[in-house]
Amino acid sequence: MIALNSAQIRSSFVNATKGDATRAELPDLSAVRWEAIDYLGWQDARRPQLHYVVLEVDGEPVGLMLRGTGRPPSRKMLCAWCEDVVDGVRAASFVAPLAGASGRRGNTIGTAICADFRCSRNARRAPAAFELRTKDPELLAYHRDQRIAGLQERSAGFARAVLRG
């Protein structure tokens, strides 16, 4: 992912008001390893029901404001973005207001994402034995690249759905 500063992040939000974007509590951007992530996701420390995701869609940063359920998931769910089944971290339900007039009328779209936004790490982990039984470095690299590409495609698809309103 391209490195972003706080002004770029705040201006990238497509489904939040300018006030919401200004009030968003940003993570420590100096600690972010931009080359190792496919999106930046975090929970607002001051308003824990709000979560944010910034990702690249067609080479441009797109920021999404998400609302969480506010409680831990009661059962395991598959993350819709990384589709990881090994790590054991639970996915959580999130809803995003749609962009534009539709979102201002209260329309939303939902998904399940890793509760701690660790999808990039999940996509880059070594495959479990039941996923891929090989030690061939080229095949392992191909598997990792396919998982990363899938994460990028599915997360960008969700962002596009928000943008379509």
Rank of each mutant, 00 (worst) to 15 (best):
L98S: 02
A99F: 03
N122V: 02
S102D: 14
V95Q: 12
L98D: 04
M65V: 14
A123C: 11
R67M: 13
C114Y: 01
A126E: 13
V86E: 13
V95A: 13
P73T: 11
C79E: 04
V95F: 11
G100S: 06
D116F: 08
V89N: 11
T69Y: 09
V89A: 10
R104K: 13
S120F: 07
A112W: 09
L64H: 05
V95C: 09
W81F: 15
V95G: 07
R124D: 08
D87A: 11
D87S: 14
A99K: 10
T69N: 15
R121M: 10
A123W: 04
G100C: 07
G106A: 01
C82I: 02
A115W: 07
W81P: 00
C119D: 04
R118G: 14
R121P: 00
V89F: 08
D84H: 01
R121I: 12
R71H: 14
G110A: 14
K76H: 13
T108L: 10
A115N: 14
G88P: 06
R124S: 11
R67V: 12
M77C: 08
D87G: 15
G70F: 06
A99C: 07
G103I: 09
V86R: 12
C119R: 01
T69V: 13
C114R: 02
L66N: 03
R104M: 11
N122E: 09
S74V: 13
C114T: 02
R67T: 13
L78Q: 04
A92P: 00
M65K: 15
L78R: 08
D84C: 12
F117K: 01
D116P: 00
R105V: 05
L78F: 00
R71G: 08
A80Y: 05
P73A: 14
T69P: 00
G106Q: 03
E83H: 13
A99E: 09
A115C: 10
E83F: 08
A91T: 04
V86D: 12
I109F: 06
N107Y: 10
A80S: 14
M65I: 15
R75W: 09
G100L: 07
C119T: 03
I113C: 04
A91H: 01
G100I: 03
R125I: 05
L66C: 03
I109E: 07
C119Q: 01
S102W: 10
C82A: 08
A126L: 15
A126W: 09
A92F: 00
R90D: 12
V86G: 02
A123V: 07
A99I: 04
C82N: 04
G70N: 06
R124P: 06
S120A: 13
G106N: 02
S74Y: 10
K76Q: 14
W81G: 02
C119M: 06
P97A: 13
L78D: 00
M65D: 00
A91P: 02
F117Q: 03
T111V: 11
C119E: 02
D116N: 14
R71F: 14
A99V: 05
L98P: 02
R124Q: 15
G106F: 01
P73D: 06
S102L: 13
